[in-house]
Design a protein around this nucleic acid. Structure first.
Lengths: 235, 235
DNA sequence: CGACGAATTTGCGCTGGATCAAACTTCTCC
DNA sequence: GGAGAAGTTTGATCCAGCGCAAATTCGTCG
């Protein structure tokens, strides 16, 4: 076993769960946390497994997917730096509701569920932050539900690209690039369609000069045009 | 203005948000709450409106719907006795994310958002309960997303009936009845389809003797058959 | 009780997008 | 650098279920 990675309270400053907390609490949380570097494509936990740790991501990107009894799966969420994941079961049934896999080399922090619960008990602001985080995700999930129920696949795919761009977009010479490698299947699992359909639309948009797809990286050249598609005003 | 309805701490015992709390806290919450009887089909709040109150339902049933810019709407959730609603915005952007309407005559409790927030700050258990509630709903929303993305309309409609039966089913001489009046449109808005499609399936199932539909009330005669449809094992 | 409005049922045609199939490209690892 | 695996593109086909429309039943209220 390698020596544990030292955890600085400053590393926790960007974790949303611990926002607006006095330094002493950050120290306390740092003292309880365990850091772990992750290579690309590492399974962090499995759906249905007992939630042995509550997680936060310091850098990189983690894919959260859920699969049903029939094997069909959806991509529940992409976790970016500063976000928590696998924390809700601490307060519900204690079972991870989904799978988590690192998409690129990443650094995660984790707590013992009991420690996190105790921390929330002692410092209500931590619990309140968590309500805010989970509440925001609930709102997003409901918005996705509405989109899925009422909008065309094309609009949904466009929405997905815009949301990812917003979450992780970085400027490049040509335009804005989505910050991590993304397969057609990933996009499809978010948008609730098939990789074939996604491929058709993306290829079409690339032909029309709205974006460039290379090495599983997407660079959006004209977000406005994608936006118009997402809003249904254009074909 | 009518005289305020007196609020007994005992009335709060069944509110999930206040579960596992000492009587003193229930008293405190009761002191801050305001009770209001609601007739059938009363709009409680509107989507986008500033969240002026945080709500809990003591009896009856409330429909939470969300509509997009294009007018398409989904039924986000049905609130039953003991559940809270319109509470998340207290901790996020302060705007109700959806509409709320009473489906039958009901009794609601509500708090000033600042009071609720203060209560959560003082008693971390309240905040922790809220994480559990919101987390559970998030899980349900994600399950719905997966269903919507991967299953047929027929299976989804069957699932909706089973879930409603589970939530509010009451035994009758013939079978189990869903506890409140329900239009085809409501079912469609939950299942993410059209009222026409719902009508076809429900009429078909009624012909096959699985349920009875009368006066906007559904009585399920053989849940097992509906279950088999929901699981995809039957046609 | 009668009349109007709301909800439901049902038929029909059409299409978005899933499914199946196959070629092609790009990464990975030896 | 080459072989195999993984991911993408594209074509062809097909059907679940949506949209439209009309008939019918149910519920409500004067």
């Amino acid at each position: 076993m390698a020596a544990p990675i030292p955890i600085d309270a400053k590393m926790l400053a960007d974790v949303a769960l611990l926002a607006a907390l006095p330094p002493a609490v950050l120290e306390e949380a740092a003292g309880l946390a365990r850091a772990r570097p992750l290579e690309r494509a590492v399974r962090i936990f499995d759906q249905g497994e007992r939630a042995g740790r509550a997680h936060a991501l310091l850098s990189g990107c983690v894919r959260i997917t859920q699969s049903g009894s029939d094997g069909e799966e959806i991509l529940v969420r992409l976790i970016g730096p500063g976000e928590i994941f696998g924390c809700v079961p601490v307060l519900t049934d204690g079972l991870y509701p989904a799978d988590a896999t690192s998409m690129v080399a990443s650094l995660e922090l984790s707590w013992d569920p009991a420690d996190l619960l105790a921390l929330m008990k002692r410092h209500s602001q931590v619990a309140i932050n968590m309500v805010a985080i989970v509440g925001k995700r609930l709102g997003e999930a409901q918005e996705r539900l509405r989109e899925l129920a009422t909008q065309s696949a094309e609009r949904r795919v466009a929405h997905v690209l815009l949301r990812l761009l917003d979450q992780t977009g970085v400027h490049t010479g040509e335009g804005m690039r989505i910050g991590f490698p993304l397969r057609r299947k990933d996009i499809a699992d978010i948008a609730g369609t098939t990789l074939h359909t996604v491929s058709r639309f993306v290829a079409d948009w690339e032909r029309r000069g709205m974006l460039i797809s290379r090495h599983q990286r997407l660079t959006i050249l004209s977000p406005e045009k994608i936006y118009r598609i997402a809003e249904g005003s254009a074909t």
